[in-house]
C-alpha cells in the first residue's frame, strides 16, 4: 500500500502515529480504531487522517460521544477477538471512561485467571503547552500507572511513536498510550519499512517498556518521558555549556518503569532529576525517587529532585508556561542537585 512510502521519511509525530496505525491495520484484520471524529475528520489532531477512507467504516469507527461507551464496547469487541485502538479526544475527557478502564479493562485477565485477554489500546493526546481551554492540557498518567493490569507508555519523538504504537497494539495487555500533543508537530527522519519486514515496527525494535539513554553524561541524570524529554535535552545542552555533563534518559514507559536502565545511570552519576508535566505530588517522579533512593542510596550525592506541575488544577493558558516544567526550572533543579 501506498499512502506510506517505504524508506526513510521526514515526518511529524502525528504522521508517525498515523503510519503506525496504518501498519497495524494492514498487518492484522482484527485491529480496528474507535473514537470521536476519527473518521472523515481524521481526529481533531488528524492522527487518523485518511484511515477510514482506506480501511472502511467498520474498521475506523466514528463512535458516539461517550468515552465509557467507547472503552466498554472496546472491551466487548476484544472479548470477541478484535484489537480495538480507542482514541480519547483529550486527556481531560478520559474520566468518563475511567471506570471501564480501571474496574473492567485492567482486571479482566486477572479475574478470569488468564483465560481472557483484552488487547485494547487507549490513545490519549496529553499534556499542555498548546494554549488550550480547560480539560485539554492534563497529564493523568499516574492514575493509570497506579492501576495494576494496565501498561502505560508515552513516546517522545516520531520514531518511537511509530514503533511504540504498533508494539502497543501487538501487546496482549491493555495499554494506555499517552501522546504528547505539544510534540505532535515535531519532525524527524524515521525508517518506515514495508509491511512484513522486521515485525514492521520500523528500524528501532527496542522494547515497548525499555528506557533509552538519549544523551550520555557523567554528572547528573535527568529522567523524562513524553513531552518533557525535549525540555530535558535542551537543559542538558545548556548545562553542558556550563560544564555539567547531563545524562538524559527517556523513560518511554511508566508502567512498567525500566529501573535497570535508570538505576545503572544514577549509580554512575550520583544525581537524579525527574521531569514530568503531571503534578509532582504522587506523580511518577515520587515513585521513581523512592525506588532510586532504595537502590542507589550509597551512590546518591544529592536528594532525588522532581520538576513538574504544581498541586493546582491545570492553570489558564496565559500562565501555563509558568506551570509547566520549562527549561529554566529543569536547569534550576540541576543546579540544586549539583550544589550538594
Amino acid at each position: 500500500m501506498s499512502a506510506s512510502a517505504i524508506g526513510t521519511q521526514r515526518i511529524t509525530m502525528a504522521k508517525a502515529i498515523n503510519l503506525g496505525l496504518r501498519r497495524a491495520l494492514e498487518r492484522d484484520e482484527k485491529v480496528m480504531l474507535m473514537g470521536q471524529d476519527i473518521g472523515a475528520l481524521g481526529g481533531v489532531f488528524r492522527v487518523t487522517d485518511g484511515l477510514q477512507k482506506d480501511f472502511g467504516e467498520e474498521r475506523v469507527v466514528d463512535s458516539p460521544l461517550a468515552e465509557s461507551g467507547i472503552i466498554g464496547t472496546a472491551i466487548g469487541l476484544a472479548l470477541a477477538g478484535y484489537r480495538p485502538v480507542c482514541e480519547i479526544q483529550f486527556d481531560g475527557f478520559i474520566f468518563p471512561g475511567y471506570d471501564q478502564i480501571t474496574t473492567q479493562l485492567a482486571k479482566m485477565h486477572y479475574r478470569s485467571r488468564g483465560r481472557l485477554n483484552l488487547p485494547v489500546v487507549i490513545r490519549v493526546p496529553f499534556g499542555g503547552g498548546i494554549g488550550a481551554v480547560e480539560h485539554h492540557s492534563e497529564s493523568p498518567e499516574a492514575l493509570f500507572a497506579h492501576t495494576p493490569g494496565l501498561r502505560v507508555v508515552s513516546p517522545a519523538n516520531p520514531a518511537d511513536a511509530f514503533t511504540m504504537i504498533q508494539q502497543a497494539i501487538a501487546s496482549p495487555d491493555p495499554v494506555l498510550f499517552f501522546e504528547p500533543k505539544a510534540r505532535y508537530w515535531d519532525k524527524a527522519d524515521i525508517d518506515v519499512r514495508a509491511a512484513g519486514q522486521a515485525l514492521d515496527l520500523g528500524g528501532d525494535t527496542v522494547g515497548l517498556h525499555t528506557a533509552r539513554v538519549v544523551t550520555p553524561g557523567t554528572d547528573i541524570t535527568v529522567a523524562a518521558y513524553g513531552p518533557t524529554v525535549s525540555t530535558a535535552l535542551a537543559a542538558a545542552g545548556v548545562a553542558g555549556q556550563e560544564g555539567t555533563s547531563v545524562e538524559v534518559i527517556d523513560l518511554r514507559s511508566i508502567s512498567p518503569i525500566d529501573f535497570d536502565t535508570l538505576i545503572a545511570s544514577v549509580r554512575r552519576t550520583g544525581r537524579l532529576v525527574v521531569v514530568h508535566e503531571a503534578p509532582v505530588f504522587f506523580g511518577a517522579g515520587a515513585e521513581i525517587a523512592a525506588r532510586v533512593t532504595e537502590h542507589c542510596f550509597y551512590s546518591l550525592q544529592a536528594p532525588v529532585l522532581r520538576v513538574g506541575g504544581f498541586h493546582v488544577p491545570y492553570p489558564v493558558a496565559n500562565i501555563e508556561e509558568e506551570y509547566l516544567p520549562n527549561l529554566d526550572r529543569v536547569l534550576h533543579a540541576i543546579d540544586s542537585a549539583m550544589a550538594h
Binding site: 472491551i75 476484544a78 472479548l79 478484535y82
Partner: peptide, 20 residues
C-alpha cells in the same frame, strides 16, 4: 459486579459478531 458495566461489553461483543 459493577452495575451496568457489562451492558457495554455485551454491545461491543455484538459489534464484533457484526464484523464477523
Amino acid at each position: 459486579l459493577v452495575i451496568g458495566s457489562h451492558a457495554l461489553h455485551a454491545t461491543g461483543y455484538a459489534m464484533g459478531i457484526q464484523r464477523d
